[in-house]
Design a protein around this nucleic acid. Structure first.
Lengths: 339, 339
DNA sequence: CTGAAAGCGCTAACAC
DNA sequence: GTGTTAGCGCTTTCAG
């Protein structure tokens, strides 16, 4: 593999001149520039990024901290889609992407810190927001730039990009309320994920603003496991047969809920209306098609990446966050309340 | 950030000694080793991987060439799952993962070659097999090690890992035949993907071995777009109402097909049996639950990664490939033929 | 506008 | 078993 020296020789200039043309240095005669470029072509030269990184003390690489749970990713196009969003801007701005995967919280912490300490990455995209996140504390100690996709607990002292989950959920639940529903069950996930907390909060606020009493018994918590969701939904409806609607914090959970409702011999939306969240592409295909909220995953990814690159290069003095808009998508899974 | 020199000073040894303890050099006294390790802890030293890569002329990084189409990834946990498989062995063997994404064939080629030429990666995992793949040719010119997940056209001159799609499909279709079905429609995808070619081939062989005539009119080709799949399925069944079963080369297509069948007022499996492929986690949740083939995605990823690392380090003289087993999963979407 | 020289942080002969 | 030295390929002062 040819190096900058080979090009220099071939073009009859010094290595530093070659470096200058590579880096588009302004003060360089267009003649020598052409000559050098010609030599590079001829020789088949390509700059060695590792060497460049070493001297520049930056890698032009972003680390992507992926959630480790399988269940999370279960049938969920979220990660494919957010990677597309991230990839598109990284590409554009000449950044590479280092994937950081793990099989648990401890490993995640170790592996991520290692990537940072060993200077593999210039910054990190954290693809989840979790309560009491040790990783964030450690990263701050190391002064690594990072952006969280999601809302962190400490909103004021982090860079983050998120949907407005509370407000979006409130709207969604108010849509149900508008249809006449008052007794609305909720299927939610592990409360260590802030996204689920926020959506539950949105639900509460919708009730509150509309003078409906909040009943914690209507809330069930499930995992990514669908069989369980189905089971829990059935149990919920058997305990509280007056429920006329179900709000699931994720479309996948809504699928499980619909199945449970059907297994009880009830109809969707005839007997029970169902809404989900995230607008999984399958939601338009199931029967009935699911009313849900599109969260613009691609944009979540691209916005976070732009932010991170900006933070790396500009070192802003104040923390900030960005909100990506959601759109409610009304389909066939909800009907009016028939007292 | 402390460097090896700082550690050397603090421990009262030379940088090379420090380097030796980092790299577990055999001839080093356990005393100095301890002393150096203590200093590293105290100072908070972590080796700079970039510098190491430069001198060692290898990065301990694997490039992952992701397919670029959105439609592919549509609701498909394939990529989450294969990344898990890849990540688990990469982690284990101390390799990092560089994500290579793109928005089209040309960009994919450019970006991938750039990663190789600029020495960012030691080898590549190509997460798709495509006909007439220019990328493969270029990578061979560059003598980059790479492993394909899927079966490449030129089987003999590549390293690859795949399911036995032909044989697995044959079994699946023979299951339908065993139920009495003879007129079996097929829903397939873009034939530039070899996986679809192979599954079609398996279908043909099943018919052939069982003395059933092959009718190309029973084959329809769709894209990742579900609405289309539904539409095409309806057209197919309207043109050939004698079809009693449908084989879809992917579960997601099977979902579209089932919807189409239902929209025609027919029952699954009462009137038409349906089988899919890949065992998407949702397939157990839909109604009826889908008979399909589990392809062990995690193992596909881990096997490919092990192979690649092996190839990078051992430089084997002969090409080889590995086959990951599949399991047919019988559920409720098929019934006996009722003439 | 261009060249010489130093150095990024680490490893690997080669000495001793 | 440990230190000295050179150098991986590139950028970047500093001269001129």
């Amino acid at each position: 593999m040819p190096t900058i020296k080979d090009v220099a020789k071939s073009a009859g200039v010094s290595p530093s001149t070659v470096s200058r043309v590579i880096n588009n240095h302004p003060r360089i005669s267009s003649e020598t520039k052409k000559r050098v470029e010609k030599s590079m072509k001829e020789i088949g030269y390509h700059p060695n990024i590792i060497a460049r990184s070493l001297v520049k003390q930056k890698t032009n690489t972003l680390g992507l901290v992926m959630p480790y749970s399988t269940e999370e990713a279960f049938a969920d196009p979220f990660y494919s889609e957010i990677l597309r969003g991230i990839g598109s801007v990284a590409q554009n701005k000449e950044y590479s992407l280092l994937l950081i995967t793990s099989n648990g919280m401890k490993e995640e912490l170790e592996v991520t810190l290692k990537a940072v300490r060993s200077k593999r990455v210039d910054g990190l995209l954290i693809l989840r927001a979790r309560s009491n996140d040790k990783l964030l504390k450690e990263l701050k100690k190391l002064k690594t730039p990072f952006v969280i996709v999601g809302r962190p607990e400490d909103e004021k002292n982090n860079f983050w990009v998120n949907n407005d989950n509370i407000e979006s959920t409130k709207k969604l639940v108010e849509y149900l309320i508008g249809l006449g529903h008052e007794k609305i069950g909720v299927i939610t996930g592990d409360s260590k994920y802030i996204v689920y907390k926020d959506r539950l909060e949105g639900y509460k606020r919708a009730l509150e603003d509309n003078g409906i009493e909040y009943n914690p018994n209507y809330i069930i918590q499930t995992t990514g496991h669908h069989g369980l969701t189905t089971k829990y939904t059935k149990e919920l409806l058997e305990s509280y047969p007056k429920l006329t609607a179900i709000f699931a914090v994720d479309d996948l959970m809504a699928y499980g809920a619909i199945l449970g409702i059907k297994e009880l011999g009830l109809k969707v939306p005839g007997d029970v209306s169902v809404v989900g969240f995230n607008n999984n592409p399958l939601s338009q295909l199931i029967t009935p098609s699911l009313t849900t909220v599109d969260i613009n995953i691609f944009e979540l990814g691209s916005t976070a990446t732009k932010s991170l690159i900006n933070i790396i290069n500009k070192e802003p003095t104040e923390y900030y966050h960005e909100i990506v808009k959601t759109n409610m998508i009304i389909r066939d899974s909800c009907g009016g309340y028939k007292g």
